[in-house]
Design a protein around this nucleic acid. Sequence first.
RNA 1: GGAGGUGUGGCCGAGCGGUCAAAGGCAACAGACUGUAAAUCUGUCGGGCAAAGCCCUACGAUGGUUCGAAUCCAUCCGCCUCCA
Length: 405
Amino acid sequence: MSSFPPVSEQMELLLRGAVDVVSGDSLRQRLEESRDENRPLLVKTGFDPTAPDLHLGHAVLLRKMAHFQQLGHRVLFLVGDFTAMIGDPTGKKATRPQLSRDEVLANAATYQEQAWKVLDRDKTEILHNSEWLSRLGAEGLIRLAGSYTLARMMEREDFRARFENHEPISIHELLYPLTQGYDSVELKADVELGGHDQLLNLLVGRDLMRARGLEPQIALTVPLLVGTDGAQKMSKSLGNAIAFEDSPREMFGRTMSIPDSLMWDWRLLLTDLDEAEIDRQKAEVESGDASPREVKADLAHDLVRRFHDREAADEARAEFDRMFRRGGVPDEIETRAVPAGQALFAVIADTGLTESRAEARRLIQQGAVRIDGEKVLDPFFPLPCASDALLLKVGKRRFLNVRPG
RNA sequence: GGAGGUGUGGCCGAGCGGUCAAAGGCAACAGACUGUAAAUCUGUCGGGCAAAGCCCUACGAUGGUUCGAAUCCAUCCGCCUCCA
């Protein structure tokens, strides 16, 4: 008797949201073997822990790993402590900085701490690729390099683009896909997961495995999540990310700010809602039977619940309604003491609501600043003495209570 | 090894020795309209100053020429191209 669910059921879950599967047939076949022999598949995912703040973009891949876990397969969380020191060139227009070993290990620890919000910690095996890669030595590395060609490497769009644009490509960057592929050889992985941009790296792994007489791994990729700007892939440096660690309010609000057209992707990739149900909602919104705002709020609620808890999600939603639908203010606003009679622009800048006094003046003149709901256009407006705190509002979302005295 | 090119604000990209805090685009921010969506329109977009002006800092780095340098010169650093 097998402990694994039927293969068709497994396939459905595993292929949800996937971009590439090389190949679907071999995945099915291997799942069948696994089920027949009652042996879990070995699923490898490499992490290059350069950015310790996880965001929803990372969640897509972690969720795919979680799917394999749910089905009873062995999921390896491979810390690329060796490869991180090389710096993965994928998708970068510039050479990545090479990190020290200590930085990498510290990042990896932070990374994992957050990853357990999505992955089942007890079912995750953690390995570090320095274990075998540092043993490889110069000779081993050169031999490894001998099994691939420059032409094949240059098939990669990011390398090619950089080459054609006369941008630098360091030799060490060419070694990255090879070392990553070597990990698969070493682990004899059945499946390797990665973002869509990793496809070529995963395929290098297949080639290297085949060359050594191993059954090549199945490459399965997930899409790169588009960020809150609706245009570029989610990334902290582009400011379009929602971090696992963001507060419920922030997570809810930032989700509400995504373009409507994006919410279906997010639904599919970040939540468990049935694909059929997603399609149904989409049809309803398109026909005007459902409000896109409400559908998006459900999504936001779902995400907050997932990364915080149900209560936090309820609160975030209620607060959002209060603030933005009814023009109210948030529950908790920090209160600061400020000198009475000080000019408004100085107060705003000095309390950090704006980055500079010049910016404060401009915003006031543009009508972006309100005191207790009253628009004030004079930057030199002196803050009156008041027994109660005054509510300062700058733009739509910056609030502060000040108590002049 | 030889020859040449290039380095400007978050990004791309103009820039004649003075009129350059530096065109234009993107992004961002604010206002209007809204659903903190999209689209559209308007404005802002180094810092300081009760300010249509003045001052400070800034065009890879350091020096220099000049009354005056993003613009010219030297050295250094980074990057690229061609030839070998």
